[in-house]
Simulated assay, not measured.
Amino acid sequence: MTAPTSGVSPRRLFRTLATAEAITWALLLTGMFLKYVTETTELGVQVFGMVHGVVFIAYGLATVLVAVDQRWSVGRLVMGLAAAVPPFATLPFERYADRRGLLGDAWLSRPDSPSAAQRAVSWLLEHQRRAVGIGVVAVLALTGLALLVGPPA
Rank of each mutant, 00 (worst) to 15 (best):
T2L: 15
T2N: 14
A3T: 13
P4A: 14
P4Y: 09
T5I: 15
T5H: 15
S6T: 06
V8L: 09
R11V: 03
R12D: 10
L13A: 11
L13S: 04
L13M: 11
F14L: 06
F14K: 03
R15L: 14
R15M: 15
R15C: 13
R15S: 15
T16V: 09
L17S: 05
T19E: 02
T19V: 15
E21C: 02
A22D: 11
A22S: 14
I23L: 04
T24N: 01
W25M: 02
A26E: 10
L27F: 12
L29M: 10
L29W: 05
L29C: 02
T30W: 07
F33T: 10
L34G: 02
Y36G: 13
V37H: 14
T38F: 14
T38R: 15
E39I: 04
E39M: 13
E39G: 08
T41Y: 04
E42G: 11
L43I: 15
L43F: 15
G44Y: 12
Q46F: 13
Q46S: 14
V47W: 12
F48W: 13
G49M: 03
H52N: 02
H52M: 09
G53P: 07
G53D: 00
G53Q: 03
V54N: 01
Y59T: 08
Y59G: 06
G60T: 10
L61R: 08
T63L: 03
T63C: 15
T63F: 08
L65T: 07
V66K: 02
A67H: 06
A67S: 05
V68F: 05
D69R: 00
D69Y: 07
R71W: 10
R71H: 04
W72P: 08
W72F: 05
G75F: 07
G75H: 06
G75L: 06
R76Y: 00
R76K: 12
L77N: 06
L77Y: 09
V78A: 13
V78H: 00
V78N: 06
V78L: 12
M79C: 14
L81T: 01
L81H: 05
A82W: 05
A82H: 07
A83R: 11
F88L: 10
A89L: 12
A89C: 14
L91Y: 10
L91I: 10
P92M: 08
E94V: 03
E94D: 15
E94K: 09
R95P: 11
A97F: 04
A97K: 04
D98P: 09
R100A: 10
L102P: 00
G104N: 00
D105C: 10
L108G: 13
L108C: 08
S109D: 05
R110T: 12
R110S: 12
P111R: 01
D112E: 13
S115D: 15
S115G: 12
Q118E: 10
R119G: 13
A120K: 09
V121F: 03
V121W: 02
S122G: 14
L124I: 02
L124K: 01
L125R: 02
L125P: 07
E126W: 09
H127F: 08
Q128Y: 04
R129P: 01
A131I: 02
A131P: 05
G135S: 01
A138Y: 00
A138S: 15
V139T: 07
L140P: 08
A141N: 00
A141V: 06
A141S: 13
L142S: 11
L142I: 08
T143Q: 03
T143W: 06
G144V: 01
L145A: 03
G150P: 10
P151C: 03
P152D: 09
P152V: 09
